[in-house]
Simulated assay, not measured.
Amino acid sequence: MAVKERVGVVVSDKMEKTVVVAIESRTTHPRYGKIVVRTKRYKAHDEENQCNVGDQVRIQETRPMSKTKRWAVVDILTRAVKA
């Protein structure tokens, strides 16, 4: 069985040991052919609270850790630039 992995951007880090990761998918509209951007948000487990808003991360599907949390942060690909 293949392990599901996604790459997305952290949009919230206000919870303890949890981050919200937004993943964009680009698909063409079936009738009009225009590219439509859809965003799906996943809650992911971040054990050491290392992620910050704007970081690009890879998440992996895991066992259910809470009512809505079924993903875990595997690694941080790029850090957000501090302004």
Rank of each mutant, 00 (worst) to 15 (best):
I23C: 15
T62S: 13
S66N: 09
P30W: 05
R31C: 04
V73F: 10
K34Q: 11
R26D: 03
V36K: 11
V7G: 02
K43I: 02
D75Y: 11
V21W: 01
K82V: 07
Q56S: 05
Y32P: 01
R41Q: 12
Y42E: 09
G54T: 06
A80W: 03
E61I: 02
D46Y: 03
V7P: 01
M65I: 02
V37S: 07
K17T: 03
I76N: 07
W71L: 04
V10T: 07
R26S: 03
V11H: 12
V7W: 07
Y42Q: 05
D13W: 08
K4D: 15
Q60K: 13
A22G: 08
K82Q: 10
V36D: 04
C51D: 02
A80D: 04
R58M: 14
S66R: 03
T28P: 00
S12L: 14
A80I: 00
I59G: 04
R70K: 12
R41N: 10
D75K: 14
R41S: 08
S12T: 04
T68A: 06
V7N: 07
K17D: 14
E48P: 03
K43H: 08
L77P: 12
A22D: 14
V81K: 15
N49T: 00
E47D: 06
T78F: 09
K67M: 04
E47Q: 05
D55K: 00
W71G: 00
Q56G: 00
R79S: 06
Q50L: 11
D13H: 14
K82R: 10
N49P: 02
D46M: 08
V20R: 11
A22N: 10
L77M: 14
S12H: 10
V11I: 15
R41C: 09
V53R: 10
V37D: 03
G8D: 14
S25Y: 05
D46T: 00
K69F: 01
K4G: 07
G33D: 05
D55G: 03
S66G: 14
Q50C: 02
P64T: 00
I59C: 05
V11R: 13
V7R: 13
E5I: 11
V9S: 09
T78A: 11
G8K: 09
K34C: 08
E61S: 06
G54V: 07
V74M: 12
I59W: 03
T27M: 08
I23W: 07
N52W: 00
T27D: 11
R31V: 05
K4S: 15
V9W: 06
V19K: 13
Q50K: 12
V19Y: 12
T18F: 02
E47H: 06
R41K: 15
E16H: 05
I23D: 08
K4R: 12
V9F: 10
R79P: 01
Y32E: 12
E24K: 09
E5Y: 13
E5H: 11
D46W: 02
G54W: 03
V53I: 08
R41M: 13
Y32R: 02
E24H: 09
T18H: 03
R6W: 13
K69S: 09
Q60M: 15
R70S: 10
K69I: 10
K17E: 14
H45W: 13
K4H: 08
C51M: 02
V53C: 13
V20Q: 10
G8H: 07
T18L: 12
S25L: 03
G54C: 07
E24M: 07
A80C: 12
I59S: 08
V10F: 14
P30Q: 01
E61K: 09
N49H: 05
V73I: 12
K34E: 12
R58L: 11
K40G: 00
Y42V: 01
